[in-house]
Nucleic acid binder design. Structure first.
Lengths: 247, 247
DNA sequence: CGAAAAATTGAGGCATATCAAGGTTAGTGG
DNA sequence: CCACTAACCTTGATATGCCTCAATTTTTCG
């Protein structure tokens, strides 16, 4: 696997692409950039890919880059000294990885699906932040959104029951899939183990609660257990203990 | 209480003070400001005070200001529809309250001790952010620090035992007090109820764990139960499941 | 000193973890 | 296409840590 992944990683160093045709151009840290800003970004960016399951960086490791998720799904996680792990963030395309102003990663970052990042050299990006207010402003907004989301998740971890946690996660996935008409349908980006780590539960409890929600007619699963179907999102939101969908 | 607090609040609208003699000048959002920046800030700032226990803003309420804590201790909290509450942040002098770019508060903000904020009109402050990179840069750093702290707390809420949570909190308080020599000693800013809400536990469990830590000789309490004493911080950190003190 | 608030302690119940087994799916090679 | 294997998921039985309910003690404040 390691050998193979090296080959993939090498392939992942793709040719530069025109930022203006980038699929996440309007949501990422570069959302407010003008042509001049893009010229600068294009000069410093590179692409790199990871296979599902690979570690992008370990907690405390020095990261020479920051970047944006172009494709794929990654988790941020923290762990105690004795090895208990908590997933503290689930990042999707357009989300920003890494921290300007600090080289050491605060979390472990893991690719859940095959993932491509648009990378910026950290030093160069820090200089850009000082000189380019459009990027700095957008990064502040995105960081504040992340902070709100983290605080919403603290409510889940501190107060909610297992059933509510699972229902909250499923409603979040269904909302992100945003298929217009009922029945809503979405493939789960995380397996049971990753879900359990995100929800502060065990695999077994997650599985049991999914079964219970299915038994209650609130959701259904497609064969394979990786795709959720929901006819009545309101019922799921009630099970989640949330009148409005969480962030 | 309400009548009296109004009087205090009125008194709280203090005369402007010279920013350069402000006690938190080097840690707050204005840490990197020069003389010109201060001139602008002084023109738009005002002070306001709250009594211990008062609500500074409700979740979802429109806040016409943002600001910095000058004195006191406040909590941010979120709640479920059926009234369960989780404290999601503990803010101290120099911390920043409110979100530029959004009027509605994401959390309920409560003064735990008597508190004074240095307030900025939100609209004016947002304009300042665009035109004053020193403030914008500092606010970004502070927001990223908050995000790291929130993620550390998610590890606590998702993985740690009651004993570890209480030990983590006590070590955090002792570290902030930063009294150089052993025995370390600090007054708890939160009562048992507020501690329980912050730690995702009940009052009773917090009380029992404090008793247990005391019985084990890891901490001691001064009469009144509001002041912790610790001879051996390492032992407390081990009880907290943390080799290094948490953020 | 007296009353209210805050903290402690105890007994018992319940939700979730843990331990263990069995079933299902996906990937691989014949 | 099928057999085989490994990973993933589900289900069951039991254990336990924390919550709930209830009573008492301690502290604070008028």
């Amino acid at each position: 696997m390691t050998e193979q992944s090296k080959i993939i990683a090498a392939q992942g160093a793709l040719a530069r692409q025109d930022c203006r045709s980038c699929p996440i151009r309007h949501r990422a840290v570069c959302a407010e950039c003008g042509d001049d800003d893009f010229k600068r970004l294009e000069a410093m960016k590179s692409y790199r890919s990871w296979r599902a399951g690979e570690t992008i960086t370990l907690e405390g490791a020095v990261l020479p880059f920051v970047g944006t998720i172009v494709r794929g799904c990654v988790t941020l996680s923290q762990s105690t000294e004795d090895g208990r792990v908590q997933t503290v963030g689930l990042m999707m395309p357009s989300d920003f990885i890494g921290r300007p102003g600090r080289a050491e990663a605060h979390c472990e970052v893991t690719a859940i699906t095959d993932t491509t990042l648009c990378l910026f050299d950290r030093k160069q990006f820090e200089r850009l932040l000082i000189e380019t207010p459009t990027v700095a402003r957008r990064l502040l907004q995105m960081s504040l959104d992340e902070l709100d989301a983290a605080r919403d998740w603290m409510l889940l971890l501190g107060c909610k029951t297992a059933r509510e946690r699972v229902a909250t996660f499923l409603s979040l996935v269904l909302r992100r899939a945003a298929s217009e008409a009922a029945p809503l349908k979405a493939e789960l980006p995380l397996g049971r183990e990753a879900m359990a780590s995100y929800l502060g539960l065990t695999i077994e409890t997650v599985s049991r609660q999914i079964t219970a929600l299915r038994r209650d007619g609130i959701i259904d699963l497609a064969p394979g257990g990786r795709t959720v179907i929901c006819d009545d999102l309101d019922a799921l939101l009630i099970a989640a203990g949330t009148g409005h969908a969480p962030t």
